[in-house]
Amino acid sequence: MKNLTKTLTLALIAFSLNSFAQTATEKFQMGMKKGLEMLGSAKGTDGFNSTANYFERVAQAEAKQWTPFYYAAYSNLIAGLTTTDKTIKDQYLDKALAEVDQADALSPDNSEIYALKGYVQYIKLSVDPQSRLAMMSASSASLAKAKALNPENPRPYFISGQNTFYTPEAFGGGKAKAKTLLETAAAKFAIFKPASAIEPNWGADQAKDLLAQIK
């Protein structure tokens, strides 16, 4: 009994110490998992806005992690895409771009970050294509860089494919051209394994949906 108590006591001490020691990484992993669940079930502009707010909280508490900025940017991008309020559409997208740059500062030359940048730039363009045509080449430059940094990453191919899908043929887009890119993306998605559970791993379903619309 005495021994058992001792063991239990030690175990408890060890447990509480252990939980202190692990707090930082475990808390971050748990926090990110919670955020990704929120993102997975987010609906509408308000939902993505809340998710963005959440990832921004994690980002400011974790000074060295790029993933919270990445997902905050992604959530703001989707909030900007879905909002019908024209006056704040650009503000969501500008916030997303700023967060992409913060992620880039923490993790330079990251294929995922440049892929997302190319996505946000294209959506910025689409808000006012007539006067923002110059952003088209900024977007394709970011995506080209993302492809060069990691040719295995399916997302830059998917985003290029998606951008091409929504670009009129006259401006170098069109469904036929998009199809090749989306098929490349689908092939890469099939074998892609993210570095960890919290690193980007989205787009495979969207790529399939777009491909289904072409066929």
Binding site: G31, N49, N53, Y54, R57, V58, A61
Partner: peptide, 16 residues
């Protein structure tokens, strides 16, 4: 004010 972010600085805690 809808969709505002309220949080405790340097923590994950907060809400919209």
């Amino acid at each position: 004010v809808a969709n505002a972010s309220i949080s405790i600085k340097n923590s994950y805690d907060g809400a919209s």
